[in-house]
Design a protein around this nucleic acid. Structure first.
Length: 416
RNA sequence: CGGGGCGUAGCGCAGCCUGGUAGCGCACCAGUUUUGGGAACUGGGGGUCGGAGGUUCAAGUCCUCUCGCCCCGACCA
């Protein structure tokens, strides 16, 4: 991609509405724009990052044997009445009527819809266990949306649901999901903490949250000093005899939550299969959510500095940006374009900053955008034929012979 | 919903108290000179001053109502 063609309206000044750093930098970097409170458009760079997170989630889900589906965003009121949540969910559930005066809501989560699907299509214990997931838009009419993508009303979530006839089977899938979530967050380059949690409105027996550690996190977490476990302070508050001296309190951003739901929804939907004796048994269920768009924000909260975003390699919209120090120097431009073509040819995601801006602007924008590797074709190349390579995260600066550039950069953009 | 703050060009702001031709910086367009950490000059374009009503000869400014946005709280993946 050439920067001169890219829709990327960077801002020098922070919009007044943005309070937290991820929101500020996403706006300043031209990643997102606000449409209304809690509603955001993703611009090309923002969408690239979102797709990176989605793809990591998808790969790890598929690796567990989970199957990807898509359910409608709009669901009929009957589903929610059947589970009892039409009354319980409150105003967070966005409700409306169609032209026939039938009631619907925009799904904030999909236990009802997925259970309905499974009821229709799963009839035998031989089809179990099964895990279905989707990566899709959710809407929750939050009391107070805030902090940009951190607590938006419309957001992208991966929600997975597993169905079983034994608790042992549910336990097993729950563990598999936990391990998958650990791999997802590790691949995303995030430091996180697994915490036992309150299952809240979802119901169920056991749940755990995945917290991305960041001082700006909305949640407080108690981590045992011996490292053995951690819990949300919401849970700690229900344990009056807990010795808080044995814990350190840290802040976290909840990016994932896994639940053993049990039979609640399956009972409500009469989700039964025939067992090996030909008898009806009610299924039991687990659900597993990851805030895909929230991970974007959390990654920035954890990885930024005064100059801007510092994307982990796996999430970066581009791995490399080539800065041409002067667009009026034909030799420089030709060299940069040749380098660009050869990097593209080996599959590196590279942005060529071919704008007729001063090199200072290009440095500032490259740092703000958080592209992991900056390759400068300029002064050094004129003098010695070398490129100057700068690493956003470490500040390391390397002088690189042009001949070695492709193989060197290929090695340096590998995701851990 | 309670408390607080803010709405003036894409972004950041001044002007309001004390009513009288709607401004500044950045961004944008054209031209010239520039190009190693947000260049300079010249010339341009862009505004229902959030909306409605009122007071007045005259409202961005005063009054009333209203909508939106942000922060704190309750709530929450």
């Amino acid at each position: 991609m050439k920067f001169s063609q890219l829709l990327c309206p960077t801002l020098k000044e922070t919009p007044r509405e943005a309070e937290v750093v991820s929101h500020q930098l996403l706006l300043r970097g031209g990643y997102i724009r606000k449409v209304a409170s809690g509603l955001y458009s993703f611009l090309p760079l923002g969408y690239r990052v979102l797709k990176k997170v989605e793809q990591i989630v998808r790969e790890e889900m598929n690796a567990t044997g989970a199957q990807e589906v898509v359910l409608p965003c709009v669901t009929p009121a009957e589903f929610w009445q059947q589970s009892g949540r039409w009354d319980k969910y409150g105003k967070e559930l966005l409700r409306f009527k169609d032209r026939h005066d039938n009631e619907f809501c925009f799904g904030p989560t999909c236990e009802e819809s997925i259970t309905d699907l499974v009821v229709q299509s799963v009839k035998s214990y031989k089809q179990l266990p099964i895990t279905l997931y989707q990566i899709h838009t959710k809407f929750r009419d939050e009391i107070r949306p805030r902090f940009g993508l951190m607590r938006a009303r419309e957001f992208v979530m991966k929600d997975a649901y597993s169905f079983h006839i034994t608790n042992e089977s549910l336990d097993k899938t729950y563990s598999v999901m936990q391990a998958a979530y650990e791999r997802i967050l590790t691949r995303c380059g995030l430091a996180f903490q697994l915490v036992s949690a309150d299952s809240g409105q979802m119901g169920g027996d056991e749940s755990a949250e995945f917290m991305v550690l960041a001082e700006t996190g909305e949640d407080a977490v108690l981590v045992a000093k011996d490292g053995s476990h951690a819990m949300n302070t919401e849970v700690a508050d229900t344990k009056p005899d807990l010795d808080r001296n044995l814990y350190d309190e840290v802040r976290g951003i909840e990016v994932g939550h896994i639940f053993k739901l049990g039979p609640k929804y399956c009972e409500a939907f009469k989700a039964v299969v025939l067992d090996e004796n030909g008898k009806n048994v009610t299924m039991t269920m687990g659900c597993y959510g990851i805030g895909v768009s929230r991970i974007m924000a959390a990654a920035i909260e954890q990885h930024h500095d005064q100059d801007g975003i510092i994307w982990p390699m796996a999430l970066a919209p581009f791995q490399v940006v080539i800065l041409v120090s002067s667009m009026r120097d034909d030799a420089l431009v030709a060299e940069a374009e040749a380098l660009y073509a050869s990097l593209v040819a080996v599959g590196i995601e590279v942005l060529l900053d071919d704008r007729s801006e001063s090199v200072g602007v290009k440095f500032k924008d490259a740092s703000l955008l958080g592209i992991p590797v900056q390759v400068v074709v300029g002064r050094d190349w004129k003098e010695s034929g070398n490129y100057e390579v700068r690493f956003r995260q470490t500040g390391e600066v390397v002088s690189l012979a042009a001949l070695d550039a492709v193989s060197y950069l290929k090695n340096r953009v590998v995701c851990p």
